[in-house]
Design a protein around this nucleic acid. Structure first.
Lengths: 341, 341
DNA sequence: TTGTAGGCGTTATCAT
DNA sequence: ATGATAACGCCTACAA
């Protein structure tokens, strides 16, 4: 049987209350008793019991607030499913979830949501815009004992507990590795990114280029276009690119806009001789994989991102467990027609 | 706040004890009170609270027994890691794990372990040999209220609660799909299976052939050899195969023996023109991927298999939760050099 | 057949 | 600064 607070109290001839005060740093304990308790706790190998903590925590009615830039972005569908699963599992512990969503990268809007949610929550999960005002807000929440975890996108130098997301660079590396295998290592490549202003997209391209350089010297990145994550824009830009560089025989789609890119390729009658690799697994991409226009797509475990993040918030609230790592990086998954699931 | 037993008792003007009896089917309750309690429980939307149950369950000192045919099989390393993680998380609930391992498919040995473990455990997780005597034993455990979950391999018509494992057929399909992408859909293929007597291996081949037939008509499966999951045997058989069928330019390794197969290929100086795809992610396979001899490997989430299974056992013991599905199938993961992790 | 009460481990409140 | 006690939700032994 594991060691309990009660046992520590008994071996020290001290009340459970005092032991609790020491072990949870609530103060108001004489230095020597504190010392005694800490040492015997260590000696006996005390580990707080989650079930007990959880039961006691039900009284507190904790709320986890979540802010996602998810509207109009199918990628987040699975993130939200993961959140939902975790939510189900932790309602037993009296913890609720308050989810706010928004559309597009407007700092003002996100600040507004933050203010709106602040006095209703005990923990914040956010998909932050990389802006100083947002960082300030995160730090402020943190100081007022609303701890923060960032999900999917991170911000530098903030007081967040940790970040849960993917390794964008590795995602790009994997895309290039896949393309290397599918082409025999020789290709003229067009890259369709979302925006050169978005860090994650750039990191993917950096990873892609790295593998090009180190492993596939005959890969030639001929052009990079921006889709602005919009299918129409993607369509137009891809058309232009294919006209300008007819030698292109492979395309790496870094972000959204896959449908537009593929439409331009098929309209040009090039779907047989251009190999396309994409990112993430939206309904459109699934369709394009089924049709054979896209050969493979690199995913980033969206469900797991949502699930894990909520679970870490739960652990913190109930057991004051601070995530052991600052970065929690999910896997890059390669999906082809046969393992789409 | 969620509904509790206490609340149901109060609204029914009945003691908590009686409500507990009804809700947990302990009998000895008048039919009409039972009816009353059940209906109000349903009306109020009662859901048992895990934290409460778990805390009460600590007194019971439950033990989960696990029997794995894992010795000398690196695949299980990650399964056991997943089990370990789950174990850590549930010790808080006073549940322990008792792991027994064995080597090779000897029915007698597994029966022996089953007898040895029986009176020490409250739940059984097993990687069963497909034999009637084992099935009988599983049914017997189940009747004596030691419920069973099968992991990685399943047995038909047994009283197991459910099975956690991979979809071997899809694994073979994915391997073929990958090979299709890497070869342009034209190849002379040699298949190196473990044993034609092992169900999972055969299912992989069935899946592989299915995609051949339906999607890659120019794929030709020229030869199938058995490695008996042994590298030396794999080496010898592969040598013979390559001599007999020099046209072979792709190999699908279904089970263990990858090192032996690859050794034969490199010794024949054919590593540049034979594309090799394997299964699972052992240290040898990682090495061969790094060297470029193997191009891709199809994995089956071993960690998740271990983790999930223990968690389901936990849920059953603490909350009598019977798995909602009879089959819990993990994903087939494609790993190449860049996303090995 | 039903009710009562104490305990699982932790925490919060009130009293000392 | 410390102790005592009740409570979280559930289970169980015992009493009625």
């Amino acid at each position: 049987m594991a060691v309990t607070i009660k046992q520590i109290a008994e071996t020290c001839n001290i009340s459970r209350g005092t032991v609790d005060r020491v072990l949870n740093n609530r103060g108001k304990v004489k230095a020597e008793t504190e010392e005694l308790i800490r040492s015997t706790a260590a000696k006996l190998g005390y580990k707080p019991n989650l079930a007990g903590k959880a039961l006691a925590a039900t009284k507190k009615n904790y709320v986890i607030g979540i802010i996602l830039i998810s509207e109009g972005n199918k990628f987040y569908d699975d993130v939200i499913k993961g959140i939902g699963q975790a939510e189900q599992e932790i309602t037993d512990y009296g913890i609720r979830i308050l989810l706010k969503t928004m559309k597009g990268y407007q700092v003002e809007k996100q600040l507004e949501l933050l203010d709106e949610i602040k006095d209703k929550i005990n923990f914040l999960i956010i998909n932050p815009i990389n802006d100083d005002r947002i960082i300030d807000k995160i730090n402020q929440f943190s100081e007022e004992n609303i701890k923060v975890i960032t999900i999917n996108t991170d911000v530098e130098n903030s007081a967040r507990l940790c970040h849960v997301g993917c390794d964008y660079k590795k995602s790009g590396e994997t895309a290039c590795g896949m393309l290397g295998l599918l082409t025999g290592g020789e290709a003229n490549i067009g890259i369709a990114t979302g925006s050169v202003k978005i860090l994650g997209h750039n990191q993917r391209i950096i990873g892609f280029n790295k593998v090009c350089r180190e492993k596939y010297p005959k890969f030639q990145v001929t052009d990079i276009i921006e889709t602005n994550d919009d299918d129409v824009c993607a369509f137009i830009e891809t058309q232009k690119m294919l006209q300008k560089y007819p030698a292109i025989n492979a395309i790496y789609i870094v972000a959204a806009g896959a449908y537009g890119v593929c439409k331009a390729v098929t309209e040009a009658g090039r779907e047989k001789d251009i190999i396309i690799i994409s990112s993430d697994k939206t309904p459109e991409i699934i369709k394009l994989l089924r049709e054979g226009t896209i050969k493979a797509t690199i995913c980033q475990q969206p469900w797991t991102q949502g699930y894990k993040t909520v679970n870490m918030a739960f652990q913190y609230l109930v057991s004051s467990v601070v995530p052991e790592k600052e970065l929690h990086i999910v896997k890059n998954e390669i999906k082809i027609l046969q393992n789409l699931k």
